[in-house]
Design a protein around this nucleic acid. Structure first.
Length: 390
RNA sequence: UGACCUAUGGUGUAAUGGCAGCACAGCAGAUUUUGGUUCUGUUAGUCUAGGUUCGAGUCCUGGUAGGUCAA
């Protein structure tokens, strides 16, 4: 009998995942990972961590499976939280949960599971895995979850073939309401628990407060860039994919000061709330931040041209292929589907591979292309690769 | 110094002498396993002292503050 270690989180998805694995005839071991203790910046005062363990324990008992706890706080801090601070410090906007999957759940946790004699690890992610044969090699496909509303393949966009080989996603073929129904039919304590939100393991935090543990607040200018700055004259030509993919750089003289902020690294492109600047007919959105000069650039209105870009670049060393066998060679071009944030509908795009990196040119201009975030490219519902946006 | 103009939530603005409204910001909730977005709800105001009037944000007088022009 094959042994599966399931990451029981105390939520409904992993609970049902554990149950389904048992149904499929696996020997299932529950392993709860404790990755965070700190409550700094936490929005809800109640301590969610202890509660999660309790729910996980209850589920393990109900499903009659051995229950273990592993503490990966140290690793989580080093490999996820430190990365977060470092990215924000450099003015980028990281995605800690993508890192959490690559570095913790499918690395540190996977190791812990293997130490327990696991053949596979399973999670409650809404995505699917498929095995195909490519030139005699077993090759794993990472597919979107069947529930279009919950598909979480994006968060797994940095997984490798080696990691995928050991992974199982039992709920990927189900809809969320079906998962809840199974849980409730089984009488699992987690059936009605609210879906988790915020940074995985950390929770919903007030980000500026959280970041101020490491990043100092310092006052700077908020500068509004008028629409008139964007003339059709200096717009890049349609075929100039390099220019279309380059971030626009603003200077303080391009606009006028409309307010002050507490640190440019606390803001991200596309952000509306928190600027504390009112009195404009339409809302202001962040269109760029400069942590060097500590300036936040904003534009007025949903349709401000500074909010939209036609393309982006993933530098060569940041390109990851979930399917290395489909890797593009220098000079190659392909039409695929791309998303630049969780739950974004897939966007038609052209991928162009060059020595400096992978250019992604969208059919439609994209709102809020943000350095530090991950772009993930798909062929239909299969995630092919991903990388950090420059 | 003289003349003129203006003063309404935190900000920008509405209101024939008749229930002070809108937008933005803020706050709260919903949505969301990143940041962000979006949706819903909500707090908060007539510069000051008098006067006219049944009734004043609105009309009159003084004060205060700001602005424009003149010198």
């Amino acid at each position: 009998m094959q042994r599966v270690v399931v990451g029981l989180s105390g939520g409904v998805d992993s609970s049902v995942a554990a149950y389904l694995l048992k149904q499929q005839g696996f020997e299932v071991v529950a392993l709860f990972m404790k990755n965070w203790h700190d409550k700094t910046g936490l929005l809800k005062a109640e301590c969610p961590f202890d509660e999660d363990v309790d729910f996980a324990k209850m589920v393990a008992r109900k499903l009659e499976m051995p229950f273990h706890i592993v503490d990966l706080s140290e690793q989580y801090r080093k490999r996820v939280v430190d990365y977060m601070f470092s990215e924000y410090q450099q003015g980028r906007t990281p995605n800690p949960d993508v890192l959490c999957n690559r570095e913790i759940k499918f690395d540190e946790f996977l190791k812990a599971a293997l130490a327990l004699g696991a053949d596979f690890v399973a999670t409650g992610h809404y995505c699917r895995k498929e095995v195909i044969n490519v030139n005699g090699d077993e090759t794993y496909r990472l597919l979107a979850g069947v529930d279009p509303n919950k598909d979480q393949s994006y968060f797994l966009c940095q997984l490798s073939q080696q990691q995928l080989a050991k992974a199982l996603f039992p709920v990927g073929g189900l809809l969320k309401p079906e998962v809840r129904e199974i849980a409730s039919l089984l009488g699992l304590a987690t059936a009605e628990r609210k879906d988790s939100q915020g940074i995985c393991f950390v929770g919903k935090v007030d980000l500026p407060v959280f970041l101020q543990q490491k990043l100092a607040a310092k006052k700077g200018s908020i500068i509004e860039i008028p629409t008139s700055r964007y003339s059709t004259l200096n717009a890049p030509a349609e075929g100039d994919f390099k220019a279309l993919s380059a971030p626009v750089k603003y200077k303080p003289t391009d606009g006028k000061i409309v307010g002050t902020h507490n640190g440019a690294h606390f803001f991200t492109i596309g952000q509306r709330k928190g600027l504390n600047v009112g009195g404009t007919p339409e809302p202001l959105f962040v269109i760029d931040t400069d942590v060097e000069s500590n300036v936040v650039y904003v534009g007025q209105g949903q349709e401000h041209p500074g909010l939209f870009r036609k393309g982006l670049l993933v530098p060569t060393d940041q390109i990851h292929w979930v399917r290395p066998d489909l890797q593009l060679e220098n000079g190659q071009t392909i039409e695929l589907l791309v998303r630049i944030r969780y739950r974004q509908p897939l966007q038609a795009a052209t991928l162009i591979m060059k020595t400096e990196g992978l250019y992604i040119l969208f059919a439609e201009p994209q709102r809020g292309i943000t350095p530090g975030q991950f772009a993930a490219w798909y062929a239909n519902d299969e995630l092919i690769g991903s990388g950090v946006i420059l």
